[in-house]
Amino acid sequence: MKPSRIVYFIREAFRSLARNRLLSIATISTVAISILILGIAVLMTINAGSFMNRLESDVQIVAFLDKSLSSSELSEIQEEIESLEGVKSVRFVSQDEALKKLQKSYGTDYDLKDTIGKNPLPNTLDIKARDPHKVPTIARQVDKTYGVYKVNYGQGVVERLFNVTRWVRVISLGFIVLLAAGAVFLIATTIRLAIFSRRKEIYLMKLIGATNWFIRWPFFIEGIILAGLGGLLAIALLAAGYGSLINRMGTLVFITLVTDSALLLNIYLGLLGTAVILGILGTFISLNRFLDV
């Protein structure tokens, strides 16, 4: 493409923006609202995914060991379990350590050691899997290990948790896809109004022999500019709102929001790119109706 044509297309796009200020503002507002809603959905999905990942990563296996085992046998059992495929870490918890943990849950007002006398708690192994979804499989292998008389990993509850997290991810992805489709429709409808006001101009250009792509380029540039401005406005509002939410919820230890600056920057850049793509797509869909007549 010749540089002179590129300059012409850009000049025509800016002329159109200047002539149709109200429609340009309406398009920018529509894009901003669409991207803002989409951005909120993406942030909600990422935070929900992060929360689900934390829940899954907290799943661990507790292996209860026979009291009759010697120190060397305990070490051998720990090494054997550590060698199992998919095991990330194995931590030995002695009877005394288990009693101290239990004492902490009761506080200082109640002395468990004096009450129960001899420590009835067994030695245990806290086992973490590399992949939380492999916990049931590893638990069955651990249960067959010599010296282990019982295995607990929250049977039943864990399987339901994994099922819920899977459906949350699927539903979240479907929700984002629906919002993106809705954004395309809104943007295409708004841009179509702007193009409709210039339908006579498009018709005259076709009469004098202008190709479809010659007609399209100024509209595409206009769509990119409008969508880019709308995307930047949405990102500014989203970043300000999310930053304020992080500051307000910083003291709530039970709710942890995603604060990774690199991840958030990628999300915002992705939303800006999405806005531009939606603008191009909306322009293309809207133009076809007038270029095909």
Score class of each variant (00 low, 15 high):
M249P: 01
I187C: 04
E201D: 11
L237D: 00
W167P: 00
R248T: 15
T251M: 04
F214W: 12
G231P: 10
R216P: 00
F196M: 09
R248P: 00
S197W: 03
A240E: 12
L204R: 01
G174P: 02
F220M: 12
I202A: 02
Y242M: 07
L237K: 01
R169K: 14
L173E: 04
P218Y: 03
I176N: 04
I221V: 13
N247V: 01
R248L: 15
L204I: 15
R198D: 07
L257S: 03
G241D: 05
W217Y: 12
L229A: 13
S197A: 14
A227P: 03
L204E: 05
W167M: 12
E201P: 02
Y242C: 08
I202E: 01
R166P: 00
G182N: 08
G174R: 01
F220Y: 15
L226H: 06
A210W: 10
T251H: 13
A262N: 15
G174I: 01
F196G: 09
S197R: 11
R216F: 05
L238T: 10
V253M: 06
V258H: 02
F254W: 13
W167C: 00
G243E: 07
I208T: 12
V184S: 05
T189E: 02
L186N: 09
I225N: 06
G250E: 11
L229S: 09
L257Y: 02
G182Q: 05
R192P: 02
L245Y: 09
A183E: 03
I224R: 01
L232F: 11
T211I: 01
T259R: 14
G241P: 08
M249R: 00
F219K: 01
L229H: 00
I225Y: 04
V168N: 07
R166K: 15
R166T: 13
G223K: 08
T211N: 08
F196Q: 14
M205K: 13
G182A: 10
F175K: 03
F214M: 10
I225M: 11
T256Y: 01
I224T: 12
F254R: 02
I235Q: 03
A181V: 15
K206M: 10
W217S: 08
V168T: 09
R199A: 06
L207T: 11
V258Q: 12
L207Q: 11
L207Y: 11
I171M: 06
L232V: 12
F214T: 13
I235G: 04
I255Y: 04
S261H: 10
N212P: 01
